Amino acid sequence: MFVKLIIILLLVAIVLSLFSSAFFLVKDDSSRRRTLTGLKLRVALSVLLVLFILLSYHFGWIQPHGVGR
């Protein structure tokens, strides 16, 4: 259950980063490059999520199951 919670939290963080970057893209007039920073954060979180899922599968914390069976 703990692994699923971490995966959900990472997904929520990715979506929040997406919306904050979209907000800064539309509303921000400064030259602070907050949209680029949001993109970097989103890519880093996505890579972290994929690595966490791979490691969770490797260590047996999550198991695949057949959906169509």
Rank of each mutant, 00 (worst) to 15 (best):
G68L: 15
L36I: 10
Y57N: 12
R33P: 02
L9K: 12
Y57A: 15
K4Q: 12
V47H: 02
S17K: 01
F2G: 09
V47F: 06
V67Y: 07
G38F: 03
I14F: 08
I62M: 06
S31V: 07
L5T: 10
R42T: 10
T37L: 06
I6A: 05
A22V: 07
L55A: 14
V26L: 08
V26Q: 07
S46V: 04
T35M: 02
L55M: 14
L45A: 09
M1G: 01
H65Q: 12
I53K: 01
F23K: 01
L39Q: 09
T35W: 01
F59M: 15
D29N: 03
L10M: 14
F52D: 00
G66N: 14
F2N: 13
D29G: 02
F23R: 00
L36N: 07
I8L: 13
V3D: 05
S31W: 11
P64S: 06
H65Y: 14
L10R: 03
I8C: 06
Q63R: 09
I53T: 03
A13I: 03
L10F: 02
G60K: 10
K40Q: 14
V67M: 11
I62E: 05
G66E: 13
I8M: 09
L55N: 13
L18C: 03
F52S: 00
F19W: 13
A13H: 07
V43R: 08
F19H: 10
A44N: 11
V26Y: 13
H58F: 11
L9C: 11
M1K: 05
K27Y: 09
I62C: 03
K4G: 15
A22N: 04
V12E: 03
V50M: 15
L54H: 09
L41A: 10
I62H: 00
V3T: 14
G60R: 08
S30L: 06
Y57W: 11
H58V: 15
F23C: 01
L16K: 04
R69M: 12
M1Q: 07
V50C: 12
H65V: 14
L55E: 13
L36H: 10
F52N: 03
L5K: 15
M1Y: 03
K40E: 14
A13E: 00
G38K: 04
I53F: 04
F24P: 08
S21Q: 05
Q63D: 08
L18M: 10
L41M: 09
V12F: 02
F59G: 04
F2Q: 11
D28K: 00
T35L: 04
L39G: 06
S20H: 00
V3L: 11
F59A: 11
G68D: 13
R69E: 15
T37Q: 07
S17D: 07
L51H: 05
F23M: 05
P64E: 09
D28G: 01
F2C: 05
S46D: 02
L16M: 14
R34L: 02
H58S: 15
